[in-house]
Design a protein around this nucleic acid. Structure first.
Lengths: 114, 114
DNA sequence: CAAGAATATTCGATATTTCTAATATACAGA
DNA sequence: TCTGTATATTAGAAATATCGAATATTCTTG
């Protein structure tokens, strides 16, 4: 109800609203990784990944731990992973529905008289 | 893993990434409402709400049913409501943690010797 | 302290979002 | 068919997000 809560949710969603950042979180889902490891696994520009990590940090979605030369990132709260898992289920459901619609359309083409 | 899935999730999150759109979805959580009812409850510009509804429609998050003069909107899949509910839990947890941190800081101020 | 490695930040250019105001469309009833 | 009501779309301005290139910072090691 309160505007504050809506804004909070919206800000988290905004932080999640980029394919690269989702890829980052999923890579971190099985444990912490250094920024360098993320850059290597994703095959993208160093600055770019660093900027995306900065967005995730700003919303406190990831934690960062400095170890000597490197910085290790991890997902702060597993609830975020639950959200992503829900999204996967949602995706599967949507794809399933789309498939069924196509099947129906096919049937209509085969039996135009009914 | 696949880029497609990441983009799909990101697009949904993007559609959710606005306080007004979250408010709309929560208003629709207990059943369908006309566009006009949403505009009234939210107290915002007609065009603005219509545009936000358009974003939600584009991602197929809401369904719309025309009835005479009006258009009734509803949430297509309750999974989306589950996502919002998870977000609320997440928010509560974050606030709880922030509170604890403040309490610790207070204690440190009271007992500087320890 | 100098040099290299890992990471972060800054700077512009471009693209996307969001808003308000104005206009368009669709429908209902006289 | 004319009028009013409900909703959608368009247009343009301002704000925000994204990217690559360049630069800065921090740490380690010789």
């Amino acid at each position: 109800m309160p505007e504050t809560l809506h804004r909070f949710k919206a800000d988290i969603f905004q932080a999640l609203a980029h394919p690269t950042r989702i890829a980052i979180i999923e890579l971190l889902s099985s444990g912490e990784l250094s920024a360098g490891a993320l850059i290597e696994k994703l095959g993208m520009e160093q600055a770019n990944i660093s900027q995306h990590l900065s967005v995730l940090r700003a919303q406190r979605i990831v934690a960062n731990r400095k170890a000597g030369n490197q910085v290790f990132y991890s997902v702060r709260d597993p609830i975020i992973l639950d959200v992503l898992a829900l999204m996967r289920r949602y995706f599967q459901k949507q794809v399933g529905e789309a498939k069924e619609m196509l099947k129906e359309m096919e049937n209509d083409l085969m039996e135009p008289s009914r």
